[in-house]
């Protein structure tokens, strides 16, 4: 991701952000599309494109869970563990997925395909327990077996050209 690419992306939307600080988030989201996460070079490029210090850009990135400053897998599976989902079995769902992926709790699979995380409410309590893959629609209610299918399907997909998470 080059500075020029980010600048080009920002040019038509700049006017929507009267406080230039607000521009950092769309810029980071865009930059994250490349590798699926934000290596330091990507944050440095955002810093240059937005005119803020690298440290400031990184502090924004670390504030938000869905901006990844550490490398993650091809798919991020975010299992909601807030009240409604928990009452409806999110613990079991999470454990099942972890087992199926061979993970000991949260983390990234060795083959770099999946990153599993517990997250707070993703706004689909009516479909509890639910999860979200990257920024896709919330999926639920899910039985452990549904999650197995989902993972198998994802494995069969070709790698995305850009990441949206």
């Amino acid at each position: 991701m080059t500075v020029a690419e980010i600048e080009q992306y920002l040019a038509p939307i700049r006017h929507e952000y009267p406080d230039p600080r607000s521009l950092i988030i769309p810029a980071l989201k865009y930059a994250q599309g490349d590798a699926g996460w934000l290596p330091p070079e990507a944050m440095a490029a955002v810093a240059e494109a937005t005119g803020f210090s690298q440290a400031y850009v990184e502090s924004v990135a670390t504030f938000y869970d869905r901006l990844y400053v550490d490398e993650v897998g091809r798919y991020c599976i975010n299992v909601c563990v807030t009240l409604s989902c928990m009452l409806r079995g999110s613990d079991e769902l999470f454990e099942h997925i972890a087992d199926y992926l061979g993970l000991d709790g949260e983390g990234t699979t060795d083959d770099g395909m999946f990153t599993l995380a517990r997250v707070q409410c993703i706004g689909a309590c009516d479909r509890a327990p639910c999860l979200q893959v990257d920024s896709g629609v919330q999926l639920g209610p899910l039985e452990p077996a549904d999650a197995t299918c989902l993972i198998d399907d994802l494995r069969a997909e070709p790698a995305p050209a850009r990441y949206d998470r």
Binding site: F52, S53, Q54, A55, Y56, E58, S59, T62, F63
Partner: peptide, 9 residues
């Protein structure tokens, strides 16, 4: 110098 910031929350 723009170097120190808070990270995480």
């Amino acid at each position: 110098d723009g170097q120190l910031t808070f990270q995480e929350r």
